[in-house]
Design a protein around this nucleic acid. Structure first.
Lengths: 117, 117
DNA sequence: AACTCATATATGGAAAATCGAATATGTTTT
DNA sequence: AAAACATATTCGATTTTCCATATATGAGTT
């Protein structure tokens, strides 16, 4: 069970918050997609994702060379609700990253999406 | 307009989060009540409240020697909703502070409550 | 097996957050 | 106006967070 302080600390960083909101919006994203969408270095993205995974907010799965992150399945309802509220009420906060993601060419998601359960 | 990162940073500290949740629960609290409920030093409480006020999460009013803090009237709906979710889903996180507040003798609130609009 | 690509981690340093202690301000009481 | 009380602020120090760089791991590809 995640504590409220731990949750809010996780959301209190621009890179982490945008990552979580993008992942929530897109269901699942790999490191390189977040790297492109947020225009940040690979280690930076990877480090924050590892942190979010360690806390239990995210879970990952590897598919070939790519590692896909999504919200953890076992999150309490109120955690998901808080994230959903943040997402739906801060469209402009995420717009640039979101547009950048859609403009990205060669997204591995397309290839992977055909293999999902 | 508060940004989501600013909001979550505000909630990412135990003293601040408990203060905000207690204030939300009790409508209005003065520094000495929070000091007692959270069992923290006066400067520490005061400093965090000042920070929350500066951000625009709290507003204060002075009544005699006491300064009462409450949630800011002009907060966006989603901000209040997030705080309400945190409050209703983390009873145990707040229980000790809450009990300590109720056990406090000579609460100035009692005197002030007769003068509120 | 060597090479490439995607991702992860380790390290040292910089920046930011937090704190305790001391002190200042403002209000009431005497 | 001095004393007492509630609150605010300053200061230096500690701790925590964050980052860039370099390097490691792990999976496909040739």
């Amino acid at each position: 069970m995640i504590t409220p302080v731990t949750l809010f600390k996780s959301l209190a960083d621009e890179t982490r918050l945008k990552s979580i909101l993008l992942i929530t919006q897109e269901k699942e994203l790999c490191v390189c997609e977040l790297q492109h969408a947020l225009d940040e270095s690979q280690p930076k993205i990877s480090r924050h994702l590892a942190q979010l995974k360690q806390i239990g907010l995210l879970q990952d799965r590897r598919n070939g060379k790519w590692v896909y992150y999504r919200m953890h399945d076992d999150l309490s309802g109120w955690v998901n609700e808080i994230i959903a509220l943040a997402l739906t009420n801060n469209a402009n906060f995420l717009s640039t990253a979101s547009e950048s993601l859609f403009a990205m060419g060669d997204r591995p998601t397309r290839i992977a999406s055909c293999c999902e359960t």
